[in-house]
Amino acid sequence: MRMSYNIEGGDFSAAGRASSEVKRTLKQFNISPLVLRRIAVALYEAEMNVVAHARNGAMQVDIQPHYISVVIEDEGPGIEDIARAMEEGFSTATDEVRQMGFGAGMGLPNIKKNSDRMMLTSTPGVGTRLELTVNF
């Protein structure tokens, strides 16, 4: 089963919609609540990264019998130093975004913790591509 969502950069009021819809869809399947919550956390963080940093992006979801594979791609500033971005506490979020409680530098570490496989690639000035898999 495949699903696709657009994510608009800067639109905090709609943020979380894609992850919520994926979670709702997955609830129909026989997936443990724990795995479901791991997926929800990983997708929400990935979605918020696009909202907080990029101009626009898309989330492509592929649900297979034993795993979910998700690609989140965006057009935006990209990530200069991926190793640094993966460090807990490192963030380039603006003050405005931080005031909302985002930009704690825990998004990418949370994604890594909650997925079974994660691949992050980026071209500074062009955009970022994140691919993650969670096994059921």
Binding site: F12, G101, F102, A104, N110
Partner: peptide
């Protein structure tokens, strides 16, 4: 911090916060 809650809170917990924007619902 929303990511702190996403990472560390457990299902079924109460969440105490001073954030009141729409994203707390998600």
């Amino acid at each position: 911090l929303l990511s702190d809650v996403m990472g560390k809170a457990q299902a079924g917990m109460l969440w105490v916060t001073s954030q009141v924007h729409k994203n707390i619902v998600a």
